Each structure stands twice: as structure tokens, then as C-alpha cells.
Amino acid sequence: MKKIIPAHLAVAFVWFSSHFGGGFASGRQIVAFYLKHQWTSIFMPAVSMLLMAMTLYFSMVIAARFKVYDYSSWSKKVFGPTSAVMSPLFEILFNILMVLVTAVAFATGGSTIAKAFGTSYMLNTVGVALVIFFLTIYGAALVRKSATIVSLILIACMFIIYIPNIIAFFPNIIKNFAAIKSGAIVTGSPDTLLDSLWWAVKYGALQCCAIGAYIVHTQACPDKASLKKAAIVGFIINTGMMYLTYFGILAFADQGVLKEAVPSLYVVMNGVGGTWMTMLISVCIILGAVSTGVALVYGTTNRIVNYLGRDLDSDEKKRKRGIHAVASSSVIVVACWCVAQFGLIPLIGKGYSNIGWVTLLVLTLPVLLRGFGIWRFSKKEIGEA
């Protein structure tokens, strides 16, 4: 793969594929963090991704410098003398995010199916939960390997959906932006520039919470030049896709799209190529939600299974692994399903925003302080590397 895809591009794509899940594909995150917060939100996707790019770059530089490629060892190095308290706190935060993101995957799939086919939201989430459960038990490896393919399909679909609609409804985009700026279209609470900036920072910090998933990829390009390229390319890809979604949804802001649980589905059903694209985007959003849910549930299940088998010999551990996996996955899936019943809009609007500001304090600020040299590594910390 190194001969085909440069290492920095591969790392940038890992960032994008992790960012681009069911919640983003649905368009709900763009509405909750940007379009509902004053006209100045037009600048904020770039602010969010700049914060994420800097945090990602400094995180990988630290990982390469001290050769710590798992998030547990990495967090201890970042937090230094405060790691006894901060590392467990980061671990708790990371696992809360995993439950929340999986619940959003359930809710995204449930809302999309309900909107497309008119079936019950609760029954839809049960169906999505069962699919994720069985894939976790029997086919997680296959789903993980196909994650890149799923992401590429989703990217292609978003281009197919939004570019024609942006072109066709460009005058409406200009009109709606002017109406939001003048107050003729009320997107949410009467926010100020600082409010819009705060929501952008929370979104960027929210994405930083998953930094543990990127650390291992530092080994692909351990020099600073490659890591800088990865951060720059990742910034361009992620920011570009966010603006594509932003303007595509903005075209329908005067038609109530901001109140929709799945704005991208509304765009398809009311825009260019509505009939045949509805099924396409529905399948793709569900695919993205399921693949995200499987990866997260499987990862957490694996950790619980290893914990349950910690005192068993290798033969007994292997024999009981299946039972432990079924039990662990069942508990996680049921817990995530219960959280999903709050609905997609509150999960993203309130759940994600709260995780965002906590992550800002617990993780993003310490990494930036380390990266900019404000909080320097002590000679003892450097000597332990």
C-alpha cells in the first residue's frame, strides 16, 4: 500500500473515515453545531478542523517522539505528573464517547428507516441493534476490513447528492444565508459570534476525543514532515466535506430542514433526483451507522473479553471466549440501544456538545500546551522515553 498511497495520505484518510460516520452522513451534526448558530457559523467548520488538525499533529509528534503508540501509554506521557488522575479520566471519557457514538449509530439508522419507509423508530433501532450484535459476534473482522470501502461509498454518495443540489439551488443558498443574517430565518437561539465560536471549538474537541484511534498510525510516518502533511491533507479533506454538507443543507433552510432528524435525507427527497436518490442515501447512511456501531461495539467487547479471561489459562480462555463475547456484546448493545431511545437530535445536540467541552479541558488543551511548548516535558519525562 505504501507504493500506492503515501503514508501521510493514508493517515489523513483514517482521520476522515473516523470522522465520517452515520451522524455526519445524516447531516445532523452540521445542523446542531453550525447552522443553528448564527450566520457567522459559515466560518466555523474550518475553525473546528483547524483545532482538530493541530491536536492530531501534536499528538502524533508526541507519540513518535516517545514511541508510545497505544492511547494508554500515550496519555500517561501527555499528562505526565498528573497522569494518575488524568489518564483514568481520559479513559472514562473515551468509553463514554464510544457508547454515545454507538447510540447515535442506532438512532441514525432508526431515524433514516423511519423517514424513508414510515416504520416505527423503536422497532427500527431494534433491527439495527440486532444487525450490529450479530456482525459483532460473527462478522466484525469482515466489516472492519470493508470500512474503507463503506467510507468511499459514503463520500461518493455525498458528492452525488450535494453537488447537484448546490448547483441547482445556489440562488436559494444566497437567499437563505442573507435571511439568516438578517434574522428573517430563525435557525435557533439568538447567538453571538462567541457562541458560534464556542460551538465550533466544542465540535473540534469532540473529534479529538477519538485521538486514541489515530495514535497507532503514527508508526506509518514517524517524521515531523510526514505528520505535518497528514494534518494538512486531513484538514483540507474534512473541511471540504463539511462545507459541502453545510451548503447543501443551507439550500433548504427556508423549508424546515433544520428541524429534520436526518437533514441529508430531506435534501434528497426534496431536491435534485429525489426519487432514486432516496433509497441510495438511506442505504448509505444505514451502512455508515452499522459499520461505525460494529467497530465500536467490537472494540469494547474485545476489552471486556480480555478482562474476563485475565485469570484463565490459554485453553480455557479460548474455550470461553465465545460465551464472554456474546455476553459482553449483549450488555453493550442493550445499553447503547437504551441511550438511542432519547432520539438523534438530543443525542447529537446535547450529548455530543457536553462531551466536546469536557474533552477540550481533559485532552485538547493539555495536548496543545505540550505541542506549543507552554507545558514542557521535564528532563525526567524525556529520560524515561
Rank of each mutant, 00 (worst) to 15 (best):
M242E: 10
L365Q: 03
T119F: 10
I185P: 04
A251K: 11
G118M: 08
K175C: 01
L89W: 02
G349D: 14
P190W: 07
V186S: 11
L287D: 04
K379S: 08
K76S: 08
I4A: 12
T102Q: 01
S151A: 15
K229Q: 14
I132Y: 01
Y121T: 08
V290D: 09
G204T: 10
R321F: 03
A107V: 02
K229V: 03
I166H: 07
Q207Y: 13
F33M: 11
Y203L: 06
I42D: 07
L312H: 10
L360W: 07
V11W: 04
D223H: 13
K36N: 14
A156C: 07
L363G: 02
V326R: 11
I149H: 05
A107Y: 02
G234F: 05
A46L: 08
F16P: 09
N238E: 09
L130V: 10
G248T: 07
I166W: 03
L360D: 08
I211S: 04
S182A: 13
L344K: 03
M158R: 00
I173E: 13
W199N: 09
L363S: 05
L197I: 12
A156N: 05
H8N: 13
G139L: 02
T82H: 12
G212P: 08
S378N: 05
F33I: 04
V283P: 05
G309F: 01
R303C: 06
